[in-house]
Amino acid sequence: MTMPNIQKMTVKDIKQQAKTISEKSAIPTFWITDWLLYVINKPALFLMTDPDYLLSATEQERFAAGITQMHNGIPLAYLTGTQEFWSLGFKVNEHTLIPRPDTEVLVEQVLHWIASQPNDSTPNNTAPKRLLDLGTGSGCIAISLAHELKHASWQVTAADLSLEALKVAQSNAVSNEVDVKFVHSSWYQALPIHENELFDVIVSNPPYIDENDEHLQRLQAEPISALSAPNYGLADIEHIVQQAGIYLRAGGLLAIEHGFDQGLAVRQLFLNNNFNAVKTVPDYGGNERVTLGCLATIDS
Rank of each mutant, 00 (worst) to 15 (best):
V11A: 01
K12S: 11
T20V: 07
S22A: 04
A26L: 10
D34R: 08
W35N: 00
L36D: 01
I40C: 09
T49C: 10
P51G: 04
L54K: 12
S56F: 08
A57M: 14
A57K: 15
A65I: 08
T68L: 13
N72Q: 15
G73H: 09
L76P: 13
Y78E: 10
L79D: 01
G81K: 00
F85E: 09
L88G: 02
F90N: 00
V92Q: 08
V92M: 05
E94T: 12
P99V: 02
P101Q: 15
T103W: 02
E104Q: 15
L106Q: 09
E108S: 10
L111Q: 05
L111W: 11
S116G: 15
D120M: 05
D120I: 12
T122S: 14
N125A: 11
L131E: 05
D133V: 00
T136P: 14
G139N: 08
I143S: 03
S144P: 09
H147Q: 09
E148D: 10
H151C: 07
Q155A: 06
D160Q: 06
V168D: 00
A173W: 08
V174Y: 13
N176Y: 06
H184F: 12
W187Y: 03
Y188T: 08
Y188P: 01
L191F: 10
F199G: 03
V201L: 10
V203A: 12
S204T: 13
I209Y: 02
D210C: 04
D213K: 10
L219M: 03
E222H: 01
I224K: 06
I224W: 01
N231T: 12
N231E: 14
L234T: 10
L234C: 06
V241A: 08
G245K: 09
G251P: 02
L254N: 02
A255T: 06
A255L: 02
I256C: 00
I256S: 00
E257Q: 11
F270E: 11
N274M: 00
A277W: 10
A277G: 06
T280K: 01
N287Y: 14
R289N: 10
T291P: 07
T291H: 08
L292W: 09
C294N: 15
L295Y: 05
D299G: 03
S300M: 13
